[in-house]
Design a protein around this nucleic acid. Sequence first.
DNA 1: CTTTGTATACTAACTAGTGAGTGTAAAATC
DNA 2: GATTTTACACTCACTAGTTAGTATACAAAG
Lengths: 197, 197
Amino acid sequence: MGPTTPSTRERIIAAASKLFYSEGVRAVSVDAVADKAGVTKRTLYYHFKSKDDLVAAYLEGRDQPNLALFRRWFSEADGSVADKVRSIFHHLAVSARHPKWKGCGFLRTSAELANMPGHPAIKIGAAHKKRFEGWLSEMFESEGIASAEPLARQVVLLMDGAFAAGLLQRDASYMETAGDAAFALVNAAVPTKTRRR
Amino acid sequence: MGPTTPSTRERIIAAASKLFYSEGVRAVSVDAVADKAGVTKRTLYYHFKSKDDLVAAYLEGRDQPNLALFRRWFSEADGSVADKVRSIFHHLAVSARHPKWKGCGFLRTSAELANMPGHPAIKIGAAHKKRFEGWLSEMFESEGIASAEPLARQVVLLMDGAFAAGLLQRDASYMETAGDAAFALVNAAVPTKTRRR
DNA sequence: CTTTGTATACTAACTAGTGAGTGTAAAATC
DNA sequence: GATTTTACACTCACTAGTTAGTATACAAAG
């Protein structure tokens, strides 16, 4: 039972994903996506009613896999909650050292489409970040942290900052620094009884 | 003695600045900038050798004024260093509530040009953020904070995160949350003798 | 003092190419 | 027989950048 042959629609999304992430959604033409997918432009427009639609599908396709990665990195890490949070940043720092790394696709797309506030892709990006923040908040709550929500938001802010600054400076170490700051904030919020000595 | 009539070059940069910031550098055509500046496209190309050049001039023109604002907000705030840092975030939150706010022009431009790593505008953006970080670090050092450099970087990360996340969510309160986190980090780093009670 | 030369600042019209999206008819796949 | 895909020509708006030429000012040469 090997992997099913991807449908045309899936191949188009996969091609769009690679191109949009590496070049930016505005820099990539619909023709380029169709070529990369090995499909005519007309076929692409059979599956997606517009380029905006395709951009939305690109981000939609990254939502769940991204969250799954974060959850895995968190659960597989040893130590306290603070350590587990820092582990996510560490894994991101490793990715950021890859030459093809271009920051966060959600944030970059929202920056590119900042003049189209109601764009479906922006809504998807916003929802994605909210889901991540919500999950983090749950993790903190289950550790008895009182300020779980603002703390989760602060951690997300550090991560988004590291995405943005790391991309601007082309320096993956921003992600580690952000992880250290997140560690400090989370550790300070953990109830004294359970804080690691 | 009044303000000197702006030169053609200055008018072009002013027009570019408004358009590039509000629409994004890729979304705005050279023609649109020329129209807004009230000059022909050929005149624009007389003063700037390419669109890339114009984009660089746009960010160059925002570097010093931006830094001056931060310095002013910092110096005019009451209280400890931590309070002064938080004051910067508070002022940014106020700006972020303006309907025309579109995040940080430097970060958004770097996101738009992520596929052109050597672009002059990206270098200018990177240098701008480094200058801000360096100035912050000096402020921390003069307060006897030992970890001035990493602390400055953490504060910058929070600010950049608030720019990115605040833009994606269209919610200025991210800037206040980031300010609170920055306050906590700075306050924890201040030598005990001088920490506010 | 008038002519000629030259540098600056500017304009209108244009080139050559790309952008998203469509029309249509025929072919392939299910 | 319905859905999916191709081939490809086409529209129309827009894009970065250019060709060729004009207005003004100021200085050197006659």
